[in-house]
Simulated assay, not measured.
Amino acid sequence: MNQKRKQAVALGYESEQQTAPKVLAKGKGYVAENILDKAREAGVPIQEDGTLVELLAQLNIHEQIPEELYHVVAEVFAFIYQTDQEIQQK
């Protein structure tokens, strides 16, 4: 049985300093688990999208996302914003 190793990509965006989100961390297997654990500990929402992770994993760390991915990454940030709002209302 060939199980695919877990993969994770962490994005960040500072509107005052960047024109687009950039890759902060990425990895497979143990590194991916560590990224996810750190996100959970920090209360960062996690969205699972295998296709997007595959695309983002092709980028280098500190590289801004290409314009072709703006729309889909905007959806991720909208998800995070909505999740943050729901948490703050509790």
Rank of each mutant, 00 (worst) to 15 (best):
N2V: 13
N2P: 12
Q3R: 14
K4I: 10
K6T: 11
Q7H: 07
V9R: 02
A10T: 02
A10F: 03
A10L: 04
L11D: 03
E14P: 00
Q18A: 08
T19R: 14
T19N: 15
A20Y: 07
V23L: 10
V23D: 11
L24D: 02
L24M: 12
L24G: 01
A25G: 03
A25F: 01
A25S: 13
K26S: 02
K26E: 03
K28W: 06
K28F: 05
K28T: 08
Y30G: 01
V31E: 03
V31T: 10
E33G: 09
N34A: 10
L36K: 02
D37V: 00
K38I: 11
K38E: 11
K38P: 00
A39M: 09
A39D: 11
E41K: 15
A42T: 01
G43Y: 10
G43A: 13
G43F: 09
G43S: 13
G43R: 09
V44N: 02
I46T: 05
Q47W: 10
D49E: 12
D49F: 07
T51K: 12
E54G: 03
E54I: 01
E54S: 09
L55K: 14
L55Y: 14
L56V: 00
Q58M: 12
L59A: 06
I61E: 14
H62R: 12
Q64T: 05
P66Y: 09
P66G: 03
E68P: 00
E68D: 11
E68G: 03
E68C: 01
E68R: 08
H71D: 06
V72G: 04
A74Q: 03
F77G: 00
A78T: 11
I80T: 05
E86I: 14
Q88M: 15
Q88F: 08
Q89W: 09
Q89M: 13
